[in-house]
Design a protein around this nucleic acid. Sequence first.
DNA 1: CGCGAATTTACGTTAAAACGAAGAATATTC
DNA 2: GAATATTCTTCGTTTTAACGTAAATTCGCG
Lengths: 152, 152
Amino acid sequence: MKIEEEIKQSKFNNAKEKALVNIIYTANAVEDAFKKSLKSHGISLPQYNVLRILKGRKDGYATCGDLKEVMLDKNPDVTRLCDKLVTKKLILRSNNKSNRRQILLKISDKGLKTLEEIYPHFSAVNELLSHVPDDRLEILSDTLDMIRENLQ
Amino acid sequence: MKIEEEIKQSKFNNAKEKALVNIIYTANAVEDAFKKSLKSHGISLPQYNVLRILKGRKDGYATCGDLKEVMLDKNPDVTRLCDKLVTKKLILRSNNKSNRRQILLKISDKGLKTLEEIYPHFSAVNELLSHVPDDRLEILSDTLDMIRENLQ
DNA sequence: CGCGAATTTACGTTAAAACGAAGAATATTC
DNA sequence: GAATATTCTTCGTTTTAACGTAAATTCGCG
């Protein structure tokens, strides 16, 4: 359905306004789809992203600052986010001897196993985009990259 | 900057995954820009949207259900959201005599004035997209519409 | 009419985000 | 090397979101 119909707005002032509203609206739909697929595993979307980032680390370790830099939502309180993952024993925390301000985070075996369990559900969400041709998705990504240029 | 660089992910598994991550990431940037422009007025983005929706009503009135249906974030607790707007005297609440379950909401004069003050800041955010050609934005919106098709 | 189902809003509770500030460790500058 | 600034994480507090549930009203149907 076109965005005008979904939010029942007869028309937008211009293409910019329409694009911005559409981005927010669609992102909510995407996040909802992911949340739904994560729900049965009892972890939130940001928590899942932390696990993925940690898994992707070559040496296995990352600091809170590393995560903050890379996460989709800016300025999350990584400390408390990770507290919950530690409680669930999905990640491990240790001190960095060469810089004692930093705390090193690492995904645990249980965390890796959880990721493996989640993966099929997650890629199922990706597959909901199969009806959109890849070249259109590439153009979309390029346009989104352009949009962010002056935005932040 | 391309999304891969921003979140320092060397590459995505496929165009679908990249597009979905990019949508969420860009939406966060857009919301941040709007929030910043609203901050000095002391209202949140959802609150602003409620004001805009109420202003757009022909007869001036809307119920909580009307708002819920149209809002960008689904299933917000409209009651408490509107509580805050009532406290700030930006909207008015009254009972519907023909259906006493419903509560009618209406934007106040102060609310209209607030919208007028905010408008220039808001359209300034839109103008940050001026470097993106309109036809690209139109294609973007069409692709986002397609993406939502199977998603919700 | 009377009963159950559906709609609409409100609320209680728990979890998470927002924001600022503090504390500890390190880096920099003179 | 002492003072200052900066970095990195944590914490307190206040808002806001999430989620289920309850209360009130209306509707549908026999």
